[in-house]
């Protein structure tokens, strides 16, 4: 049984910040105030802090708007790695594992959990470094499988449905003007030509009226 790890996150950093969504109209991005203490399912607290710091360099919080920190990207990644995806449920994993051509796709035996565990080892203490130094370290591993996964997962954690742990308060969707899963645009689809249509985002649970069980909770 693994020791219980928690990650304490500040959720207040974006309250009241003005961001410019893609219609170039300023709007207020809402996120809750205070701190969140989130139980971790896969990472240790130290690993989670390093992943959060790396994701924050990939998708920084800056003048163009909030980023991976506010969206809770690390929570998304933690849950994915703890669930079936982390254990390679969505991949054919029968041996032999042979080196292939790039066009034959990823062929290694290492699953996403293994890739993170190994990839994080040389990054120990990453979250305690200066931003410029962090960027230099990430530039050095840019072409690794680990970094490619981390970049993909950062984007996913920014823009997933909030039920998966990222995109907290739909902050990623607000940032790009994505309205989430809405039932119909029948009246708007041929009317908004050349001008932005930006309805308020809704989550899947809000649309269907009940909680939906996400894939990471499956066996």
């Amino acid at each position: 049984m693994r020791r219980r790890h928690f990650l304490t996150l500040s959720a207040s950093t974006v309250g009241g910040l003005l961001v410019y969504s893609l219609d170039r109209t300023p709007s207020r991005v809402h996120a809750q105030e205070g701190t969140l203490r989130v139980p971790l399912k896969f990472f240790t607290e130290e690993q989670a802090l390093d992943v959060a710091a790396a994701a924050a360099r990939i998708f920084p919080s800056d003048e163009s708007g909030p980023g991976a920190t506010e969206a809770g990207v690390v929570i998304y990644i933690d849950r994915q790695l703890a669930g079936p995806y982390g254990k390679d449920r969505y991949r054919y994993t029968q041996p032999p594992f042979e080196k292939g051509l790039p066009e034959q796709g990823y062929q290694d035996a290492a699953n996403p959990r293994d890739i993170y565990r190994e990839g994080l080892k040389p990054l120990a203490g990453f979250h305690r470094r200066e931003a410029a130094e962090q960027d230099k370290i990430l530039t050095g591993i840019e072409s690794t499988v680990f970094f490619t996964l981390l970049r993909t997962h950062t984007i996913e954690g920014m823009f997933c449905d909030p039920m998966h742990g990222g995109n907290r308060d739909m902050i990623g969707w607000q940032l790009i003007g994505f309205p989430g899963p809405r039932m119909s645009y029948l009246e708007e689809v041929d009317q908004y030509h050349g001008r932005a249509f930006r309805p308020k985002p809704v989550s899947l649970a809000e649309v269907v009226g009940h909680r939906v069980r996400p894939s990471e909770e499956e066996e």
């Binding site: 823009f159 997933c160 449905d161 899947l204």
Partner: peptide, 15 residues
């Protein structure tokens, strides 16, 4: 299918 409007589970994990 209504509860399936989730990009991760259907678009990416390919349910």
């Amino acid at each position: 299918y209504a509860a399936g409007m989730d990009e991760l589970d259907y678009g990416i994990r390919l349910r």
